[in-house]
Amino acid sequence: MRRPTTAAALSRRRLLLGGAALAVAATQLRPAAAHHGWRSFGDTPFELSGTVEEVFLGNPHGELAVRADDGVWEVGLGPPYRNRRAGIEEGTIAVGDRVTAIGKRARDPEERAMKTERLIVGERTYDIYPERLRDS
């Protein structure tokens, strides 16, 4: 005797399997995307100098890839409107520019990641988080 629900049961199982696969895939993603706000960054002042390899100024926040002596760093900037208020626009930072980023580095010492309070591009200084700069 054939069970009439076989096809439905099969597609349900496929759906479950697909969901499980997606869940597993999600846990494999690098946590880089979770770097919003200042939560994942420490409290001690940090400074990084290097050469810009990539520029991203979109949402939820801008990011530079900066090559320093010890490798490529993920240098977080502010959300788009904050960057613009600081004077950073499309074209302000170009690949190949020498930059110095002042801010806080990721709490996880394994990560080459920081979030920027002040960015120096060539001769110009951009205060992205002026309200946080009081103490440093």
């Binding site: 706000g37 939560r39 988080y129 309200e131």
Partner: peptide, 9 residues
């Protein structure tokens, strides 16, 4: 409180 300085402004 977690980001009081930035949120305060």
């Amino acid at each position: 409180a977690s980001e009081a300085v930035v949120h305060g402004a």
